[in-house]
Structures are given as C-alpha cells and as structure tokens.
C-alpha cells in the first residue's frame, strides 16, 4: 500500500529540490556570499515533503529558523529564498528577515521563527482563527527536539487540547538540541511522544526519514484536525547531515552514529524504493536534473539581483507602510 505513484513522485521531487537548495545554500555560504548564519535541514527533507504534499493549499505552515525547506515545500519562490539568504532586493523579505525568517503568506508559509518555541502558540492562534471562522484550514507547526523543554511547548499543547484546535505539532527529533544530545538534557526518552499523554494525546513516534510514513502520518493527523477532533503531536525521528548552523562541524557526534544515519538518507532510500517499485529510472533522473536546474536558475537570479534597498530600512513597521512614532 502507501501513496500512489503520482504522490510518490511529488514527494521525491520535493525532497530533491529541498536537498539541492540546501546544498547550494551551503556552497554559496562557503563562498562567503551569505553573511550571518543559516541553519540547514539537509537530511530532514522527508518530513517537510510528507506534510507539504498532504496539506491543503490554504493550510498554514509555521516553522523554525531551520525553515528553508518548509517554506519552499509550500511552493514559495526559490529565487526569492536564495535572494533573502544573499541579502538581495529580490529576497522574499527584501532583506529585512534573512535566512531565519523566510515567510510567504501567499503560500500559507506563515513564517520561520527564530526564538525556540515561540511559533507554537502562534500556530495555535492561527488554528483558533480557522476554527472560529469555520474555514476548515489546519495549521501545521514544525519544531526541533530542543523545543520540547521550553515553556511555550507545554502552554501551547495544553491550550490546543482544551480548545480542540485544528493544529498538528511536528517534532523533528534530529537527536541534538544545537550541540547537545537531547537525551542528556531531557527527562524522557522520546521528548515529544513520551509527553503526549500529559496532554491526553496519542503518542505518535514515526520514522522521519521515510517519506511514505511522513505523508501518511501527515494525512491522518491533518484529517483529524480538519474534522474537528483536535490537535496531534507527532515525533519524527531524523538526523541532520550537518552541524547546527554555519561553522558547526558537528564533531560532537560519534562517527558510527553519523555513518548509520547517513546510510538512512531519506532521499537515497526513497529513490531506491521508487526504482524497485517500477518507476522508470529516466523519470527519476529527469526529476534530479530539473531540480538542479531550478536551483541553478534561482541562484543565478539571486546573485544578479541588486543588494537590498537602503530606502526600505524605515518602511513597514506599521500597516500604513511607514515607521513614524511621532508627529
């Protein structure tokens, strides 16, 4: 069983695109074209793809500073994302946000939030709004394992359950909160799933590197939310291929562990599954080539765009477009 071929190809295509974009972001970083910091989701693509493919166009995504993939997965422009990373005027936020804040409201990508846990109640609020507007929309909120130890996680789960909000919380457990193994700072083995019971929720612990599993988990939890049965808390086990952020070589991770997880690369695994399931190799190769080309074009467009505009510094604090605080 599992998703049909069309869905599987879409999942594969999305994962490859997210992987190539992140890899390119890394390369461009190494060229010193990207300033500041950036947090790549290399290795975590199956979660973003599984949910994005299962979501309705008008559903809401809330994600963290490791949010390039989640934002692009909703269909946001790659050139605008790369432009934002490069601080260009074509950037998604015209240079005001940077790598950690990619947002495209027109695609339901409601923002990337850089304070751990902050977006959880905000996602619940969007779900509350959908509930009272009876719009049928669902909010999906992605966060890391480290978030499970901050207060907003607990405040939000409690409120979301009490108000039966149409929201799905997705813990991407990549085993490290920044540089520290999550189990060394957490009271339970599974930081999200083991706490689900505290909020009367089912413990959902799934393989976050399996796109089919993620798609099915997403479909099930989103359907539950949409039908008015309330929130879900998913813990998806995964692994980031690189460090926490720019300049973190992740040398704190045992070599054996890295080797094992690299062998479970979500894209490599999925490609093999599709090939052995009868999908034509040429079709997969075309997806690979198209993704590469898409990233090339986006990078080219961003590199050629002029820098972010100085004139915009004092715009858009307020809804009138300006920033006046006095008369």
């Amino acid at each position: 069983m599992g998703p049909d071929d069309k869905t599987r190809l879409k999942l594969y295509q999305l994962m490859v695109e997210l992987r190539d974009f992140e890899q390119r972001a890394y390369d461009v970083f190494m060229e010193n074209l990207i300033k500041g910091t950036s947090h790549l989701a290399l290795g975590q693509e199956a979660i973003a793809a599984g949910f994005a493919v299962a979501m309705r166009k008008d559903d809401y995504t809330f994600c963290t500073y490791r949010g390039h993939g989640h934002t692009l997965a909703r269909g946001a422009s790659m050139a605008a994302a790369m432009g934002e990373l490069l601080g260009r005027s074509n950037g998604m936020l015209h240079g005001k946000g940077g790598s950690m804040h990619l947002t495209d409201v027109t695609r339901g990508a409601m923002g990337s939030y850089a304070i751990v846990g902050a977006h959880m109640p905000i996602a619940a609020g969007a779900a509350w709004s959908a509930q009272v507007r009876k719009s049928g929309q669902v909010a999906v909120c992605f966060f890391g394992d480290g978030t499970t130890n901050i207060g907003a996680f607990h405040e939000t789960l409690n409120l979301a359950v009490v108000w039966k909000l149409p929201v799905v919380f997705v813990c991407e457990n990549n085993r490290y909160m920044e540089y520290t193994p999550i189990e060394s700072v957490t009271a339970v083995e599974h930081p999200a799933a083991d706490r689900a019971a505290a909020y009367g929720l089912e413990a959902i612990l799934v393989d976050g590197n399996d796109a089919d599993v993620m798609y099915e988990t997403a479909s099930r939890t989103i359907a539950r939310a949409r039908s008015g049965e309330g929130p879900s808390l998913v813990e998806a086990l995964t692994y980031r291929h690189g460090g926490h952020s720019r300049g973190d070589p992740a040398s704190y991770r045992p070599k054996e562990e890295v080797r094992e997880w690299m062998s479970r690369d979500p894209i490599k695994q999925y490609r093999e599954r599709l090939a052995s399931g009868g999908i034509d190799e040429a079709m997969l190769r075309k997806i690979d080539d198209d993704a590469r080309q898409k990233v090339d074009l986006a990078t080219e467009e961003a590199r050629n765009a002029p820098p972010a505009r100085i004139e915009d510094i004092e715009s858009q604090v307020w809804s009138d477009g300006g920033s006046a605080w006095r008369n």
Binding site: F62, I122, A152, L159
Partner: peptide, 27 residues
Amino acid sequence: ERVRDTPISEQAIVGAAMGAAMTGLRP
C-alpha cells in the same frame, strides 16, 4: 466563543492572539 477564559499561560495567550491576528481576527 468570543469571550473566553484561558489557562495561566501568558505566552500561549499572546501567541494565540498573534496567530489569530495574522489570519483574520482582531483579538
């Protein structure tokens, strides 16, 4: 529905209002 008690969860209260304000309510 429109006038609602919350738990003692100030982050959740303000965060929920923000998410609602972003998506069509005036909380």
